[in-house]
Nucleic acid binder design. Structure first.
Lengths: 100, 100
DNA sequence: CTCATCCGTAAGCTTCCACTAACCGTAAGC
DNA sequence: GCTTACGGTTAGTGGAAGCTTACGGATGAG
């Protein structure tokens, strides 16, 4: 995983992820519903794949892409970790101020 | 919230978030531990603030920044929603293939 | 009031990113 | 074998992003 957050930074790539979450699709099928050309979609998919967010499966000449739950789970782990840490720091801060 | 994912795309900003999660800090204090100048940190904090990920509080001439849990929670909501949708689509796909 | 400290902002530069157009490789159908 | 359909890759370009330097504003101390 190079950088899942950077992969999801682009609105176009989030749109792609949302569409794939609803239903696995091929590259051309995605491009048909998006305002960019097929190569652009292909490049986005490459980035999403490197980030571990999507998977691809050869299906004849077509290439069907689908969501990789592991990628989303990795982000969630990061969030949870730091969210809890922030809460702990906040509690500690409050306790420190109460002693004053 | 303009774009929380784009805000967290930069490694420097994730570093800042991690440090603030451990303990609220002022701008200069952050910059002292980072390999960039203070204005750069200030610009990053502005982006993180616009994204709803951090909050600031005036403390004399200093300006203390801390994590805003709501921002992280928003990302988590997005993840959960599409993750569940992807799972549902996956189950549906399997059932459809079993009928063939 | 003056000075020092802390911080945000503007301007400029460099680097990276998203997009298109053109090309090449591969699998299915006649 | 030839053609068609589907995708990945490359080169090139316009625009956005991050960094630094320089400057201006606000608060506290003396």
């Amino acid at each position: 995983m190079t950088n899942a957050f950077a992969a999801l930074a682009e609105p176009m790539r989030r749109d792609i992820v949302e569409r794939l979450a609803g239903q696995p699709m091929a590259v051309g099928e995605l491009a048909a519903h998006l305002p960019v050309t097929r190569p652009a979609v292909s490049q986005h998919l490459k980035i999403l794949k490197d980030a571990g967010l999507v998977r691809d499966e050869a299906r004849g000449t077509r290439r069907v892409y689908s969501i990789d739950p592991a990628g989303l789970a990795a982000i969630r782990t990061w969030l949870d970790r730091h969210w809890e840490k922030a809460l702990a720091a906040y509690v500690e801060q409050v306790e420190r101020e109460e002693k004053e």
